[in-house]
Design a protein around this nucleic acid. Structure first.
Lengths: 198, 198
DNA sequence: GCGAATCGCTACGGTACCGTAGCGATCGAT
DNA sequence: ATCGATCGCTACGGTACCGTAGCGATTCGC
């Protein structure tokens, strides 16, 4: 074999990151030990240290490795775009292994500046996607121009994140649709700009 | 002094729990060490073990010690009740030391059945308070009888929890009012029971 | 093929924490 | 005031993990 599909270094790297993701999902960031990563990955501890200088870097790269950027659709319908947008984002971030790591990551991010940047960057990116969808709808006139976009993004993201992280219930398409519909119902009717006067 | 205000045992207990809360808020549940609790509380490690058999019990009781149950108002106005309800609950659970512990607690609860019960009980109780407020409004006819109460509670709680835990922004009264108003706007207009057909 | 880089393995000293034990000092009830 | 219970202190063995080093084996680039 003169031309392996991937180099040994890449293969080792993948095995280590994969085991790290598994372990973080299982025991959390704090209880992650390099020894255990070495055991599960089949890669020697000394080799791990040759690739990753610290646990911090290892975790950051492990998270980075299983992070995917979802597509942003533009169907012309705000409702469809929002459902598609949040369906893709939540399934990407809160389902599967990344979902199992999320709480521990957010907790660890409180004390680790690097992890904090990583988590915050992901959160901001998701908000930006939703913001774009909403602003396109504003441009189309589908929604009042003085809509509080930031608040609306929170109204949409919040219930889904809350359902997943706090209640630990699965994020069904029905729930996503229900949240989108409810928020749209509250935005369409002239709430924007003022408060209800009872 | 033949009659101290509180017995020594109680004083010791308080000091230990207080230091535990501080430490969990600072370094998280996983990195909590009995040695450090002993240092900060001024209580000897052996004495701590005389009061609390395990770290698990210690943390549970520490959380229990700084948990307060908010009042449920009944002003006759759904909007006022909801704002008051969520203002009290969020300030009780997500502000102060308990708020600093929340993420770490929720993370640890994923692997500790006892902590899981504790966190889930608090979550359920908060949902029950909000549910009661909504059901009283239904009984008054202020809101359609076929309102999806459970979904509405999620729509209200979600954005606030998300703002606090994920975005780490302060929970202002303005935000709470804005969330309540938005959700009410979406519920008043005949969404209940059906989906928008556009 | 062959040299150089990389890896697996083992072992090491150092650190932090656990949970327990012993003992003198302090407190609290009577 | 006294005596039992409780606490502070110190020390201990045990465990888990860290990060590094050495060395034979494997692999990759040329």
């Amino acid at each position: 074999m003169t031309a392996p599909a991937v180099s040994r270094a890449e293969r080792v790297r993948e095995q280590v990151l994969d085991a790290t993701v598994e372990l973080v999902a299982a025991v959390g960031v704090e209880r992650l030990s390099i020894d255990e990563v070495a055991n599960r990955s089949g890669v020697a501890k000394s080799t791990i240290y040759r690739h990753f200088p610290s646990k911090q870097v290892l975790v950051v790269e492990a998270v980075h490795a299983c992070t995917s950027i979802p597509m942003v659709t533009d169907s012309g319908s705000l409702r469809e775009d929002l459902i598609s947008c949040f369906s893709g984002m939540t399934k990407a971030s809160y389902e599967g292994r990344l979902g199992d790591m999320m709480l521990s990551l957010m907790d660890a991010a409180q004390r680790d500046p690097e992890l904090n940047r990583l988590v915050r960057a992901q959160t901001d990116q998701k908000r930006r996607f939703a913001t774009e969808v909403l602003e396109r709808a504003i441009a189309r006139g589908e929604v009042p121009a003085d809509l509080d976009v930031d608040l609306t993004v929170t109204l949409l993201s919040g219930p889904l994140v809350y359902t997943k992280l706090v209640r630990r219930l699965p994020l069904t398409n029905e729930l996503i649709a229900a949240v989108v519909d409810s928020v749209l119902a509250g935005s369409d009717v002239g709430v924007a700009g003022g408060r209800r006067t009872t």
